[in-house]
Computed example of a mutant assay.
Amino acid sequence: MHTIDGRQWATREDLIESSGYSRTTIADLWRDRETNGHPQPRVIDRAMHWDLEEWTHWFEQHRQQASAPASRSAPASRVDRSGDPDELLPPAAQARVLGVDPSRITQYGKKPPEGWPAPAHVEQLATRTREYRTRRQLWQFADNSPGFGTAGGRPSGPTAKAPDPRVRQAALALKAAPDMKPGEVAAALAQQHGGSVHTWKRIITEARKTA
């Protein structure tokens, strides 16, 4: 990200991070620039940069226009059914598909509701992990979760504490590797599914109580 004369200029990586959309989606928008009015870039340090304010304003208008037909046919629905079913989406984009606030996805990472899919891909960042899920996974979750197909995205009626699907994952892992120590199983689960070893140790303890 560069700041020139008080304006921020973003690389494609910056646009991906800012919008929450995947690299494929951002690249497709640039590919179709002649028909969608995509803003023109400025070359800085031999790399294309876009005026972030201009691009964000254009992107929001483009997104609203793209979703307008679906909104008219099903005005109460907040689930976005468009796009590639197998596209890997970061948390912000997952929230857009389900029509919920991004904080809801963050909360699901700590206390996943019943049916919340395991990540299709986990990216290890410097200080945390980022979980990716496909549109197909999110659509299936919405279809099986009352309320996500309607405005607000919240199931009706009293809410109950949903079982943590990670407990079942931990139980299966313990059963599959009876000779491994719980700490070793926790490390293997953290590497496979993301999250900290400490968190998985806690989940393993819970799994052993319910076994």
Rank of each mutant, 00 (worst) to 15 (best):
M48T: 04
W50F: 10
W58D: 04
F59G: 01
F59T: 00
E60F: 01
E60W: 01
E60K: 15
E60N: 13
E60H: 07
Q61S: 14
Q61D: 08
R63V: 08
Q64G: 08
Q64H: 11
A66C: 06
A66G: 08
A66W: 06
S67P: 08
S67Q: 05
S67I: 06
A68Q: 12
A70M: 08
S71Q: 12
A74G: 11
A74E: 14
P75M: 04
P75N: 07
P75R: 05
A76E: 15
A76C: 02
A76D: 05
S77D: 11
V79H: 07
D80P: 03
R81C: 11
S82Q: 14
S82H: 09
S82E: 13
D84F: 02
P85I: 01
E87L: 08
E87S: 07
L88N: 06
L88F: 04
L89W: 02
L89P: 03
P91T: 00
A92L: 02
A92P: 00
A93R: 12
A93P: 07
Q94N: 03
A95Y: 08
V97S: 10
G99F: 09
G99M: 04
G99I: 00
V100T: 12
D101P: 03
P102Y: 13
S103M: 14
S103A: 15
I105S: 05
K110V: 14
K110I: 11
K110M: 13
K111M: 01
P113E: 05
E114Y: 09
P117W: 07
A118M: 09
P119R: 09
P119G: 10
A120Y: 02
A120K: 02
A120W: 01
V122D: 03
V122Q: 02
E123Y: 10
Q124K: 14
Q124H: 13
A126S: 07
A126Q: 09
R128M: 02
R128I: 00
R128C: 03
T129Y: 13
T129D: 15
T129I: 01
R130I: 04
R130A: 14
R130W: 02
E131D: 13
E131C: 03
E131V: 09
R133P: 00
T134R: 12
T134L: 08
T134N: 11
R135N: 03
R135G: 00
R136M: 01
L138Y: 09
W139D: 06
W139H: 15
W139T: 02
Q140I: 02
F141T: 02
A142K: 14
S145G: 00
P146C: 11
F148H: 15
A151C: 07
G152V: 10
G152D: 13
G153L: 08
G153Y: 06
R154N: 10
P155V: 05
P155G: 13
S156V: 03
S156F: 11
S156P: 15
S156A: 15
G157A: 07
G157M: 12
G157R: 08
T159K: 11
A160P: 08
K161R: 11
K161Y: 00
K161P: 01
A162N: 15
P163I: 07
D164N: 15
D164V: 00
P165E: 07
R168C: 01
Q169H: 09
A171F: 04
L172Y: 03
L172I: 06
L172F: 03
K175N: 10
K175Y: 12
A176N: 12
A177F: 05
D179Y: 02
D179L: 04
M180L: 11
K181V: 00
P182D: 05
A186C: 07
A188T: 07
L189A: 04
L189G: 14
L189E: 05
